[in-house]
Design a protein around this nucleic acid. Structure first.
Length: 662
DNA sequence: AGCACGCCGACT
DNA sequence: GTCGGCGTGCTC
């Protein structure tokens, strides 16, 4: 077959949201032009690795402008049909440049055009753990999942902490493994601990590999190929694992499906869970979304039967649900954020040789540094944020841009020497508890003392080995850890979450409360959870604690429906960033005009100023597009994004489909 | 994004 | 004279 009039349509790694046409290189057999193969192309002055998308006869670009591709790198499709379809869908749905999506799913070496090295064969370990006996509910769940082999079906495995979701995943996976199929388990960043992998690996005598951002490029490359050629049978990984190619994927599990870390917050803003659901749909395989506190969107889909709702209602063995109690901070005597009642409870639990876990989502010593005379609060120069007071090392620090300032002796505004740190962070709590309980090991766990590789593991080991102990921590202690001696969990400040203006704040706070609470009393010992609040009469908080998450979620869904918020409407954010405030506003107003002229059935709100209006010196504003129908919103974006791209603007814009916050 | 071109200011 | 600052424009 002749190569005359043959044009290669190629995805090139550039933020431009379009494909580029090239002429084939000299002496290439058309049979070797497989969509999904890599091709080296000249791109302006550079040499880039692109992905062949299509071979066509005609180009919209004048033939004279077409350049000749340098070389075909692969003679087979490096990106399989399956992965290609998924990546193209994701690129279209999230309105992110195709070339960037396709190349970002490749390991670094492949992105750079290298060919694959010889790979050592994977060895299958011998299984050492046995299947546990399933409860009746677990059996029902597992049976439902395996009955759906080779069929697209979304299961919401809704089970309280300690109800044995993992066992259901494993026994469902086992069914697919014996048929020679592979399994993908997606977990939030935080719960991908070595123990999690070890537990899965110990069960099956097949290769189980991990996938996360800390892997070296070499390991990543091996894992990628092992999944693609079918050697690796189980991959357990964080959100980016959803784009690993598989030879024969049989089932996908998304553990802690409500977790916000599944949404990538920068650049390509995809939701790992939602991409996973599309992948299951394309592959016609089942997917299991597991959570004790399902996201409202999944909860709604289960209620209206788009998903199959599987319930695990009881904790296994002798473990009981923890007992929740609110402490009214308006009535409590308190020191450094600790109420009298909480101090007494801590003392009681420690006296019985038990451990206590204290959750405070605020690192540093104090969140505010303040002048008593002129009431000035120290702000970050580059961000719209307060500087946080840190001790050890002593300094003021911005938690958004990490800039560091020395602690001033006097106020810069009024020269008063009456300056002080106000409020409580994990460091202050730690030092106070050391004074209150001098003979008890106190372990703090936050980003400041877990940066070093292995530091987190060391601290967790200390916790596991200690008898009585107090663990203080931020978000990172909420998930995936099993402390068998913890009988008391305390939440120092739930009010920030209760009172936030973010539309998902209440949902996330409830999930966090139950997640943190679930750390207490996991084995024979009964657990209690104490929540300090200045809003003990908060209607939704009471509903959550008295009636449980299901009732809470149904009520919150009603409120979302009344307010016309997701999941009852569909939203996309157009975010503009610029060093010049006025330039950014002009740009968004132009976009807004384009939206209204396009005449779609949707609302365009804004420009609105987000919570953090300035970050690292960069101003940001949003336009919120809201529609009753997802296809309407998608059609609007498809038409408008190229027009938005064409607006001249000294800054940058990003599209955030299904944003977590406005 | 990345890279080149081009037009102005401050240096061996 | 020319080195280099970043505004502007383009990528098949």
């Amino acid at each position: 077959m002749t190569l005359k009039n043959t044009i290669l349509r190629i995805a090139v790694p550039t933020p431009l949201r379009r494909l580029f046409d090239y002429l084939p290189p000299q002496g290439v057999d058309i049979e070797h032009l497989k969509p999904g193969c890599r091709i080296q192309v000249p791109f302006q002055t550079r040499k880039l690795v692109g992905i062949l998308i299509d071979v066509v006869k005609k180009s919209d670009v004048p033939v004279a402008k077409l350049k000749k591709a340098h070389a075909i790198i692969d003679n087979t499709a490096l990106i399989s049909n399956e992965l290609m379809r998924l990546a193209l869908w994701a690129s279209e749905y999230y309105h992110y440049a195709v070339g960037e999506v396709l190349l970002s799913v490749l390991p670094k070496a492949l992105r750079q055009g290298k060919t694959l090295p010889a790979l050592p064969a994977l060895v299958a370990p011998l299984a050492s753990d046995l299947n546990l006996a399933l409860s009746q509910e677990q059996t029902q769940a597992q049976q439902a999942i395996i009955a759906s082999a080779n069929t697209f079906n979304v299961f919401l495995l809704d089970g309280v902490t300690g109800s044995g979701k993992t066992e259901v995943y494993l026994q469902a996976i086992a069914h697919y493994l014996v048929q020679g199929m592979q399994a993908l388990i997606l977990v939030p960043e935080i719960s991908l601990t070595p123990q999690t992998i070890a537990r899965v690996a110990a069960r099956f005598s097949v290769p189980v590999l991990a996938w996360h951002s800390n892997l070296s490029d070499k390991v990543r490359l091996h894992t990628w190929f092992a999944a693609a050629n079918g050697d690796a049978k189980i991959i357990i990984g964080t959100r980016s694992a959803v784009f690993i190619p598989f030879k024969q994927l049989g089932i996908i599990i998304v553990d802690e499906e409500h977790d916000t870390s599944f949404k990538q917050q920068e650049r390509f803003k995809y939701h790992g869970r939602d991409v996973a659901i599309m992948r299951s749909k394309f592959n016609a395989i089942p997917i299991v979304l597991g959570s004790a506190t399902p996201s409202l969107e999944s909860f709604m889909n289960a209620q209206n039967a788009r998903y199959t709702h599987l319930n695990l209602s009881t904790r296994l063995g002798h473990a009981q649900m923890p007992h929740y109690q609110l402490l009214d901070m308006k009535k409590q005597v308190q020191v450094e954020g600790l109420s009298q009642a909480l101090q007494e409870n801590i003392a009681e639990h420690l006296a019985q040789n038990n451990q206590v876990l204290i959750f405070l989502n605020r690192r540093g010593f104090a969140p505010v540094f303040y002048c008593n005379e002129c009431h000035t609060i120290l702000q970050c120069e580059r961000c719209d944020a307060r500087l946080v007071y840190h001790r050890s090392p002593l300094r003021l620090q911005c938690h958004y841009c990490d800039s560091v300032v020395l602690v001033p002796k006097q106020c810069a505004q009024c020269q008063s020497e009456s300056v002080c740190a106000v409020g409580v962070g994990t460091q202050r709590l730690e030092s106070k508890l050391q004074v209150l309980f001098p003979d008890v090991p106190i372990i703090r766990l936050d980003r400041d003392n877990t940066k070093r590789k292995g530091a987190m593991q060391d601290l967790l080991t200390q916790m596991h080995q200690a008898e009585k102990a107090i663990l203080i921590g931020t978000q990172m202690i909420a998930k995936g850890h099993h402390f068998k001696n913890v009988t008391l969990t305390a939440i120092i400040d739930v009010d920030v979450g209760l009172c936030s203006a973010e539309f998902k704040a209440l949902e996330h706070t409830a999930q966090l409360i139950l997640q943190v609470g679930g750390r207490a009393g996991r084995e024979h010992k009964a657990g209690s959870v104490l929540i300090q609040t200045r809003n003990p009469e908060h209607k939704m908080l009471k509903l959550l604690l008295q009636q449980g998450y299901g009732h809470f979620a149904r009520q919150l869904l009603c409120e979302r429906q009344m307010a016309g918020l997701p999941p009852y409407t569909y939203c996309t954010l157009v975010r503009a960033e610029s060093y010049q405030l006025s330039v950014m506003q002009d740009f968004l107003l132009k976009v807004k005009t384009l939206v209204s002229q396009a005449g779609f059935a949707l609302q365009c709100l804004g420009p609105v100023t987000p919570m953090l209006a300035k970050k690292k010196g960069l101003h940001a504003q949003h336009l919120i597009l809201q529609a009753q129908q997802r296809p309407v919103l998608q059609a609007c974006l498809k038409q408008l994004v190229p027009q938005i791209e064409a607006i001249k603007f000294n800054g940058k814009f990003t599209i955030d489909v299904d944003p977590l916050e406005f």
